[in-house]
Each structure stands twice: as structure tokens, then as C-alpha cells.
Amino acid sequence: DVEEQIRRLEEVLKKNQPVTWNGTTYTDPNEIKKVIEELRKSM
């Protein structure tokens, strides 16, 4: 579920933690925001 994935990513973003997405680890909050944007567009 895309909305659930977005929620999880936003939680990680709030905690300022790195997130691994599709085999890539993002540590930059701006990169994580881009991933969230892409997910929103795909909905």
C-alpha cells in the first residue's frame, strides 16, 4: 500500500534516520522527501 509506505518514510524523516529504499540508503532528508514525492505521483 503506497500510502502506508509514505507514512513510514515520513516517520523515518521525523526521526532523522537513514532509510533504505529499493536497495539504496538515503541519509539526506531532501533525498527522502524526493522518494516520498515520487510515491505520491505514482498513486
Rank of each mutant, 00 (worst) to 15 (best):
D28P: 00
I36P: 00
S42I: 11
N22H: 07
E37L: 07
D1N: 14
W21S: 10
P18E: 15
K41E: 11
Y26D: 01
K33T: 06
Q5P: 02
E3W: 12
E4G: 10
E38L: 13
E11N: 07
E38Y: 12
T24A: 08
R8F: 15
R40W: 06
T20S: 15
K33C: 07
E3M: 14
Q17M: 15
N16L: 03
E38V: 08
P18Y: 05
V35N: 01
R40D: 01
Q17V: 09
T25H: 06
R7C: 08
N30L: 13
Q17W: 14
W21R: 11
W21N: 08
V2E: 04
W21M: 15
Q17Y: 15
T25W: 10
K33G: 07
I32M: 03
V35I: 15
V35H: 02
G23T: 01
T24W: 04
D1T: 13
V35L: 15
Q17C: 11
M43P: 05
T25V: 13
K33I: 13
L9F: 10
V35S: 01
R40S: 04
V12C: 15
D1K: 10
M43I: 13
R40Q: 07
E31A: 08
R7A: 11
R40A: 04
T24M: 13
K14W: 10
I36T: 01
S42R: 11
E38N: 11
P29W: 05
T27M: 07
I32Y: 01
M43V: 12
T27C: 03
L13P: 00
T20L: 14
E31V: 06
I6D: 01
V12N: 15
L9Y: 02
K33E: 09
V2K: 05
R7H: 08
L39W: 03
K14L: 13
E31Q: 07
L9D: 00
T25C: 08
R8L: 15
V12H: 15
E3Q: 13
V2Q: 06
L13R: 03
K14G: 08
R7G: 04
E10G: 03
K41T: 10
E37M: 09
T24S: 06
K14Y: 09
K14S: 14
E38T: 10
E10N: 05
P29Q: 06
Q5F: 13
T20V: 15
T25N: 03
D1S: 13
T27V: 07
S42W: 09
N30H: 13
Q5K: 06
N16R: 10
R40P: 00
E11P: 01
I6G: 00
G23M: 00
Q5E: 10
N16W: 12
E38R: 10
M43T: 08
T25Y: 13
E37W: 03
I36S: 00
V19P: 09
L39K: 01
K41V: 10
M43W: 04
P18W: 04
I6T: 02
L39D: 00
E4P: 03
Q5S: 07
L13A: 06
Y26L: 14
P18M: 07
E4A: 11
E4Q: 11
E11V: 05
T20M: 14
W21Y: 12
N22Q: 12
W21I: 15
P29S: 06
E31D: 12
R7N: 08
D28A: 03
I32W: 02
T27L: 07
E10V: 06
K41F: 06
K34T: 08
K33R: 13
W21P: 06
W21H: 15
R40G: 03
E10M: 07
I6R: 01
T24R: 07
N16G: 15
V35E: 02
K14M: 11
R8V: 14
I6F: 03
T25K: 03
Q5W: 13
Q17S: 08
I36F: 03
L39T: 01
E38C: 12
P29F: 05
K14V: 12
V12G: 15
R8E: 12
V2R: 05
L39V: 03
V19L: 13
R8A: 13
K41W: 05
K34V: 09
K33Y: 09
G23N: 04
Y26I: 14
E10Q: 06
K33V: 09
I32E: 00
Q17F: 15
E38H: 11
V19I: 12
Y26M: 11
T20D: 15
K14T: 12
T25D: 05
N16F: 12
E37N: 08
K34Y: 06
T24V: 15
T24N: 09
I32F: 06
P29G: 04
K41C: 07
L13K: 02
G23V: 00
E11Q: 06
R8M: 15
